[in-house]
Amino acid sequence: MIDTEHVVQRFLKYVSFDTQSDEDNDAVCPSTPGQLVFAKALAEELKAIGLSDVTLDEHGYIMATLPANGAEGPVVGFISHVDTSSDASGKDIKPVRVTDYDGKDVVLNEARGIVFSTKAFPEVLKYKGQDILFTDGTTLLGADDKAGITAIVSAMEYLIQHPDITHGMIRIGFTPDEETGRSAALFDVKQFAADFAYTVDGGELGGLEYENFNAANPVITFHGRSVHTGDAKGKMVNALSIAAEWQQLLPAGEKPEYTEGHEGFFHVYKLNGDVETCTMHMLVRDHDRQRFERRKALLQQMADFFNEKYGDGTVVVTP
């Protein structure tokens, strides 16, 4: 029987590491030093529980092997990522543990009035009667994807401790910078040497995703002209206003908050800048390749429209 408390404490140890990645830093891998700190600790743990061929390269990629113990078959791999999203802080995480969840709203941080709402997230009701880990609402928890790492490491440890369970060779791999879209860039598939592999990341209990979308992460740059507001009429070009116009021109119903299943979308998730220059970060997703290419083409058509309206070079799309 699995020691649940042991698994929980492993997870809590993992989330104590600040491993946010930085999508703006593509000069080095990993994009943040905290990922390598965690990777080194994780590699040592893999050796300690008895895995073999544990490797950690200078970029933070970890690989290890659980040798076969009598069963024959293909080499199976399991993969997770060590980094967490930059959308919210991943430092000094304060977990909130709810035991025997009663199905009601959860007060995460009374001092700040932060409440986890069942109306906003009704899927939590599936886990009524179970124990759930939250944060206090001021940071990420880091379950994406330290829960995946916890599951893989705990499964390997269980198999090592129970040699009566026969299995073939298992390879595990932990990667950096998944949240930036660059985790596969330096992943050595030949070294990993699995016949097939599963990524353990996200989804509800028992879920299995066997397909993927086409993805692009374009950056849209808007160039304006800053003029003193007292003399701005007919002269000022406000990059922020153009960015807002761009957002409104995107197909209204094709955004994540309105789509599901195989429906593709455009998603603006970050906007920085001022009157002179503004940069917009977007996600473009679609399961259908032809529709995906049309989505990318639409962005360039929009840029052409704005450049004709406001002047050449006003909008630049970087794929």
Rank of each mutant, 00 (worst) to 15 (best):
F306E: 03
L299Q: 09
G261P: 14
H287Y: 14
H267F: 13
Q300A: 03
I220D: 03
D195Y: 06
G234E: 09
E293D: 08
I165A: 03
H167R: 11
M302F: 09
E254T: 05
P218A: 01
D286M: 09
T221E: 12
P176D: 11
S226C: 02
T166Q: 11
R294A: 12
E257Q: 14
T221S: 10
G261K: 15
F265G: 03
V284A: 10
A216H: 08
P218R: 00
N307T: 08
K296D: 00
K190F: 02
G224K: 00
T229C: 07
F196Q: 01
L205W: 10
A194E: 02
G173Q: 06
T175P: 09
V227M: 07
N214K: 02
L208T: 06
L298K: 00
L205Q: 02
A297V: 08
E260F: 10
G253L: 10
G224D: 04
D288I: 01
T277P: 01
N214G: 01
V227Y: 06
E178T: 10
H167M: 01
L186Y: 10
Y210D: 10
T259M: 15
Q290N: 01
F222D: 13
D286I: 06
H262T: 13
Y258V: 14
L283E: 12
D201E: 06
T199R: 04
V284E: 00
K190H: 12
P176W: 11
C278E: 07
H281A: 14
F187L: 15
V189Q: 05
Y198P: 06
K296T: 03
G273V: 14
W246L: 11
D188T: 13
R285W: 02
H281Q: 14
V189W: 06
T199S: 07
F222P: 12
H228F: 10
D286G: 05
G206N: 02
T175D: 02
H287M: 05
